[in-house]
Amino acid sequence: MENPRSYRFSFVLLALALLLSCLLNISSGSVSIPFADVISSLLGKNAQLATWDYIIWDYRMPKAFTSILVGGGLSLSGLLMQTLFRNPLAGPFVLGISSGASLGAALLLMGTSMLAGFTSFSFIGDVSLAIAASIGSFLVLAVVMIVAQRVKDTMALLIIGLMFGSITSAIVSILAYFSSAESLQRFIFWSFGSVGNLSTDQLLLLAAIVVIGILLSIVSIKSLNAFLLGENYARSLGVSLKKSRLTIIIATGLLAGGITAFAGPIAFVGLAVPHLTRQIFDTMEHKILIPAVMLYGGILMLLCDTLAQLPNSASVLPINAITSLVGAPVVIWLLVRKRKMMF
């Protein structure tokens, strides 16, 4: 009902902020490249050194693009979960969806090597990793959904999510104990989270998954809005509960699972960004919230990645640690300031 026009200014600001953080992200890295050269390289003119062009176009640009996809996609899945579960604390990490993806990845990376120790990793393609992680997240999501049907208490749901996290990490520990050093290392690097190591094919696959997730969310806008009243009201408004719930779950599972597969389990973005977004966009209309959380998530992820990329040094901090360091205080701050979290 509120004119979308009144948010146009905020959207322009957010888009500018995204552009700026993108530039900042691209101009920082282990190799120091003057800002002027970054700009001229981006504009299609050559930078002073050909290697700089190569670094910017073949390494930093895909990384920035991945960050935007990961941040935007995770934030969107967080928004969908908060509405679907009627719970302000819902998010891919809290509800154990990321743990499910981890389990899928762990079973693939370490489990297969256990079963067939002699086979090389080469047959574990990117697609199979994405599929394994997505299946893992879907399974957990389905179980959480079934439990949510029976347990109306929102606290119980969160505790169940935490328990899933514990179970998963236990299974992962067992797998780790029996697996080879090589595959264990591979899994641990995956679990640090990274937006930098994606090949063009992987990036395209990730983009395709995120786009499908976005499309499914856009189709669900009307039912998402109706779910804000509760399921019985949504039903009385003509929403087909089964169909729209399934669509939203598939969108969430694809987004959280697909992203976790490629970028590792990244904490807090999905939970914190929707709440941060509501600080500026004071509306519950998903037509506005969906693009807003995605822009916001993209910005946050770019900034976190810039932080992770220690300036002028070759070392990169695990992105998962950075998002937790940024995201957890945000959640605490929101809780303290508003006393009660709303969605």
């Binding site: 809005n225 804000l228 009243l229 509760g230 009201y233």
Partner: peptide, 22 residues
């Protein structure tokens, strides 16, 4: 219904507007 709306963060106008969904 006797149940409260799931999200109380809706404005009055937003909540009433949801009635137009059909």
């Amino acid at each position: 219904l006797t149940e409260q709306p799931a999200s109380k963060n809706l404005t009055v106008q937003e909540l009433i507007a949801l009635g137009r969904q059909p």
